[in-house]
């Protein structure tokens, strides 16, 4: 997973995850290798150039995700959320409303939170994507992630990755957030379980403040 060799394709993870186990790891891994190897042969076509038309069939594009350059075969109608989940197997990003209303699909585009469900994979270009999988560093949870565990800030879990993305962005860009700042940061993140009070507590705790 930690393939730092940018420019080459990264290998699909070999670790057995709950998801790969359920789906049948062998088949999905073989498919990914075939796809990415094929992509290398057309490496020169992987960057979109202005004044040109692409698609509608799938083509191989490059995308920098969590610090690694990935190649993937997508159509212009493939959303970024689908590209991450279905093509790169980064299923931490959730799709719930699929209309930009709930922000479960929040990822960073050049460091700014966006809804991956409401943009095309072709929109990414040379910008860098960060997903929930890229928040923990060197096996260590981000303080916000740790605080979510300690403050029980997750119930059913569907909103949690997007919620954490919003809260991490806040504490990384505001060294002294107050409750109103946390509310503002999470205004787009819908939690059907209503676990907002614990989300606020966890985020302020991670920023070393208490309510």
């Amino acid at each position: 997973m930690e393939d730092k060799n940018q420019g080459s394709e990264s290998k699909p993870t070999k670790a057995i995850t709950r998801r790969s186990f359920i789906r049948g790891a062998g088949l999905s891994t073989a498919g990914s290798v075939l796809l990415t190897t094929n992509a290398l042969a057309f490496a020169h076509k992987e960057q979109l150039v202005t004044g040109e038309e692409y698609g509608p069939e799938a083509m191989t594009i490059k995308m920098k995700v969590n610090g690694m350059m990935k190649s993937l075969s997508v159509e212009p109608r493939t959303t970024l959320a689908s590209a991450l989940r279905d093509h790169l197997e980064l299923t931490g990003t959730k799709v719930v409303c699929d209309r930009g209303s709930c922000s479960a699909c929040t990822v960073y585009l050049d460091g700014k939170p966006v809804n991956a469900c409401m943009m095309s994979a072709f929109d990414v270009g040379d910008k860098e994507i960060t997903t929930i999988e890229g928040i923990a560093q060197n096996g260590e949870l981000h303080p916000v992630q740790q605080a979510f565990i300690e403050h029980d800030a997750s119930q059913c879990g569907y909103c949690t990755p997007g919620m954490i993305m919003s809260c991490v962005h806040l504490v990384e860009n505001n060294t002294d957030p107050n409750l109103e700042d946390v509310k503002n940061a999470t205004r787009g993140n819908l939690c059907r379980c209503g676990t907002y009070p614990n989300v606020f507590k966890a985020t302020l705790a991670a920023a070393k403040k208490t309510i």
């Binding site: 979109l48 202005t50 004044g51 698609g55 509608p56 212009p76 109608r77």
Partner: peptide
């Protein structure tokens, strides 16, 4: 979504 092609415009005139 239906299938569509993608044109990357380089200028307003081009678009």
């Amino acid at each position: 979504m239906n299938k569509f092609s993608w044109y990357e415009a380089k200028s307003v005139e081009d678009a």
